[in-house]
Amino acid sequence: MRRRTVAKAGGWAAQAPLLLDVAASWELRLRADGKADGTVRSYVDSVRVLSHYLAEHDMPVDVEGVQARHVGAFLAASAAATSAGNAHKHFRNLRVFFAWLVADGERVAASPMAGVERPVVARGRTRTRALDDAELTALLAVCSGDTFECRRDTAIVRILIDNGMRLSWLAGLRYSRDDAEANDVWPAEHRLRVPLKDDDVLLAPIGHKAAAAVDRYVRARARHPHAGSPWLWLPIRAGTAAGEHRLTSTGIQQMLERRGREAGVRGRLHPHRFRETMADDYLRAGGDPLNLMRIVGWKSVEMARQRARTAERSAGERARAEHARLSPGDRRD
């Protein structure tokens, strides 16, 4: 890919690096500043998603060539595909990123963010769109297969469908065949262990199909060149910038987006959509809201109550639709 040549301090010229080239340095800087893991993932994800959008739309992908109109187009597309809140998050993250590029001398021009309009987020919470049955079926179909990658992706998707697990929890799962203290995965017992804050632990249940998918992946994992890694999810090829052999939160998100496109899923596929879908399905099937709270790890009872109210509205809508179909009065002249 062609890069721009820019004049640097000292009078010499150099090619402007690509956005993805500096992402690893950006991550190192954030960690050196003591940013939390979730914050680091969010910042780096915004850079990665921006770079992919620019490349797909034949726009500049080097740090010097990106202009306000390019970022603006990306944010508009993000708001349309996901939500204004998600676009606003990218806006905040990219503003910090480009300020760092300028301050560190990687970008000669001023930050393009000065000319980018801040996305407007409407008041009140807009629910993430859940996945429908056809999308879930298509997603499992594109992940099916006997390769290591297919087994891994199927196991991840099955856990998300069945448990709605948070991305950071999913990526942080460890695996050890010999050390129970270093192992978070028990397919035979249909549960996963998620370490929480203050030494708390969530024992997340999974169903038969999810457990079978995890077991099938673990058997393939044993033949992986880096099977000795302490992390459950392994990449196909390279490891992380820190030299770890694991599939990070960013790697899982990339996989989901790719599989989502292959399956024809509407909008950007991300773990929270599975969480929404799982909660809706569980309550529609008659599940107890408080038990759902324990399964997914909610700390607030109010969240369970909100879900119960949503489920009740959905049940009312189904009841009215059923009455319209089976109305005793309409069946009599």
Score class of each variant (00 low, 15 high):
Thr39Trp: 14
Thr39Cys: 11
Arg41Cys: 08
Ser42Thr: 14
Tyr43Val: 00
Tyr43Trp: 05
Asp45Glu: 13
Asp45Trp: 12
Asp45Pro: 00
Ser46Pro: 05
Val47Ser: 09
Val47His: 06
Val49Gln: 13
Leu50Gln: 02
Ala55Lys: 13
Glu56Met: 10
His57Tyr: 12
Met59Ala: 14
Met59Pro: 00
Pro60His: 09
Pro60Gly: 06
Pro60Leu: 10
Val61Pro: 00
Asp62Tyr: 12
Asp62Trp: 11
Val63Asp: 13
Glu64Pro: 01
Gly65Phe: 05
Val66His: 06
Ala68Trp: 11
Arg69Thr: 13
His70Thr: 00
His70Glu: 09
Val71Gln: 05
Gly72Trp: 11
Ala73Trp: 09
Phe74Trp: 14
Phe74Asp: 03
Ala77Pro: 00
Ser78Met: 13
Thr82Ala: 14
Thr82Trp: 11
Thr82Gly: 01
Ser83Cys: 05
Ser83Phe: 09
Gly85Asp: 07
Asn86Tyr: 11
Ala87Phe: 08
Ala87Gln: 03
Lys89Phe: 00
His90Met: 04
Phe91His: 14
Phe91Trp: 15
Phe91Asp: 01
Asn93Tyr: 00
Arg95Cys: 02
Arg95Tyr: 02
Phe98Gln: 07
Trp100Ile: 04
Leu101Ser: 06
Val102Ser: 08
Asp104Leu: 02
Asp104Gly: 07
Glu106Met: 15
Glu106Thr: 06
Arg107His: 08
Val108Phe: 03
Ala109Phe: 11
Ser111Trp: 00
Ser111Gly: 02
Ala114Val: 13
Ala114Tyr: 13
Glu117Ala: 15
Arg118Trp: 05
Pro119His: 12
Val120Leu: 10
Val120Asp: 10
Val121Ala: 06
Val121Asn: 06
Ala122His: 13
Ala122Lys: 15
Gly124Asp: 03
Arg125Val: 12
Arg125Asn: 05
Thr126Arg: 15
Arg129His: 12
Arg129Gln: 14
Arg129Ala: 14
Ala130Tyr: 07
Asp132Lys: 08
Ala134Cys: 03
Ala134Glu: 14
Leu136Gly: 02
Leu136Ile: 14
Thr137Met: 09
Ala138Pro: 04
Leu140Cys: 03
